[in-house]
Amino acid sequence: MIAAIRSEWAKTLTTRSSWYTLAAVIALGALFALLFGYAGAAEHARMTAAEQAAYRPSPDFRPLIFVQIAVGYFGLRAFTVEHLTRTMALTLTTVPRRGRVLAAKAIVCAGLTLAAGTVTGLVVVFVNRAVLTSRQVPVNTLSEPGMLRVLAGPGLLLTLLGLIGLAVGCLVRSTSGALVVTIVMGVFVPAMASLYPEWLAWLILSYWPITAGLRLLSLDADPDLPGPAAGLAVTCAWAVILLAAAYAVFRRRDA
């Protein structure tokens, strides 16, 4: 198993596009933290004095909507690149236990996305704070309860979203197809929530991987939505179920 992990590790690190993708994860976080920071500041400036007085800051993790696509792409590539370059046959003649190949890919993906995701989370929080503070918009103090969870949480959430991407890549096999699934799941479905009937919108907010996972990063305690732990558990369950489905298909499929 260790040898299989080392092989997947080497595969990931010896292709430049892996590095580009991880760099894109962090860069997208910084870029959208900046954009949403200025947008948030402008919104705050337009508020009436009463509204500003009632304003309660909360960390803005909307950049993760975009970051998750890059993370999902990083995950799905672990499989789709091997199908594209037809090296899967070579991989499976050297490591014929398919569960082992899937596990090794998942572990390497999780390790790297945890690192890149944690950095991205910190970048998003601190870039956003810097922009808001420079515009005299109040921000959460770092000593606020739950702040540690907010700072450490994005890495965990992005790791799970990377694993979901990896499972989708295994199931779909083609890069473009898997990317479409990732974008539809990650962006389109939650973005259209306002168009859905209320019950469906509530389901999406509570039980869809990205929206449920974002509850982990929320400081408000909305009684209608899952709490941080429950939200994380939902995203975990998605990752586990999709990885199990990927294993069930990958185990039997012609390579």
């Binding site: 092989s7 080497a10 595969k11 010896t14 292709t15 430049r16 370059t85 090296t87 046959a89 070579l90």
Partner: peptide, 21 residues
């Protein structure tokens, strides 16, 4: 023809070699 086009020949072999120690 089943090689990653942007991986060097040595790295290609290394990825395989480490999988079997």
């Amino acid at each position: 023809a089943a090689v990653h086009p942007r991986r060097s020949a040595r790295d290609h072999l290394r990825c395989l070699a480490v999988s079997n120690r």
